[in-house]
Nucleic acid binder design. Structure first.
Lengths: 189, 189
DNA sequence: TCACATATGTTGATTAATGAACAAAATCGA
DNA sequence: TCGATTTTGTTCATTAATCAACATATGTGA
């Protein structure tokens, strides 16, 4: 692809993310973004229909990074459970500022919704892979694990990460292991 | 000016400077520069005729920064003598890696030549401003001060800056003050 | 409430950057 | 030495980015 496109998108996204960290979403203008990205205002419009589109794509990018970054490395999924979960929390820790902003912002429900949707999908895939059979309704179980995981993450982030990522990984894992082989809901196939 | 031009020039210059620091000038290719700058090879040729042109403009940029950075701030030139000279050495210290490379490179005489030329010009301007009248030949005096200053700088840089920039400024100033009011040869009007 | 400023989208002409292709020169390795 | 590879410099059609100029909408302070 034409490298100009990549450069422009990157510059705009970086500028937007930077502005998100230092002010409320409602206060951010396209003018500001274009100025900070050192890009013509028209270029912003050529890539994103409006600022909400920009927000959604920004959320998408970050969440994709989160889920991608936390894939188990090794071919054996059994051992990588704790490792990948630990990596997940470490990644969250490194980007805590961003996720904290996103989770605490009242106006941005899009982020929570998208995170929840991705988590649900991830849990479903995990269940399919490990083939768990219980008498609990599958749909409910998915919601249960997804919400539980997100709840722990949200609490951890918004409370300034009071425990280490490794400790969090251990705790969450032991909670999940009580339900057999559901290891890392963040892991997608 | 079209901001695309500025961006491309900056990216190319940054890439070239970076490569200069980590390998010999002779080993640097246009391909490398374009790749590191993330720019089409043709773009490099549209801004610079060849790699020597690129080198010269790079030298010019850095030396301009050096001389600009060392202008006396205050309106009264009398006090600013030591301050600006100290700033000069501090600036050199911060960019020591680059200047050391440039001064030590056997193949690049262009840098030394250009530095010498700018220094001569600067000393001449200083002499004109302070209106020194001695029986010493003006031309010879200019060469004397220029070479003396460059010699000190070169020794300081290539010997890993054994003294602080403030100490260097003091010493050089006291040497120059023996010839009346010639303060900071690096200062241009 | 009403100017006044700022932000939002849109349009169109212009321009710089792009990728691909090319021939020629230089470099390298065997 | 010779063949293969890389680099160099150039050309050209295509395309994304630019700037300027709009009209409209949205605040914001007096």
């Amino acid at each position: 692809m034409d490298r100009r496109i990549e450069k422009s998108r990157q510059a705009i996204m970086d500028a937007f993310t930077k502005l998100m960290l230092e002010k409320d979403f409602e206060k951010i203008t396209i003018n500001e973004i274009a100025e900070l990205a050192n890009v013509n205002r028209g270029t912003v419009y050529s890539h994103y229909v409006d600022i909400f589109d920009l927000l959604n794509q920004c959320i998408e990018n970050h969440l994709n990074k989160l889920f991608e970054n936390c894939q188990p490395r090794g071919s054996d999924n059994s051992i990588s459970g704790k490792d990948s979960l630990c990596k997940t929390f470490t990644y969250l820790e490194q980007n805590a500022f961003f996720y904290s902003k996103m989770l605490m912002s009242k106006s941005i429900t899009a982020f929570r919704n998208r995170l929840h949707a991705l988590m649900v999908k991830s849990v479903e895939e995990q269940l399919d892979m490990n083939g768990i059979n219980t008498d609990v309704n599958r749909e409910i179980m998915v919601q249960y694990f997804a919400s539980a995981t997100i709840g722990v993450i949200e609490w951890w982030i918004t409370n300034s990460m009071p425990y280490s990522s490794e400790y969090m990984a251990e705790q969450l894992l032991s909670l999940m292991e009580r339900y057999q082989n559901v290891t890392d809901p963040l892991t997608r196939s």
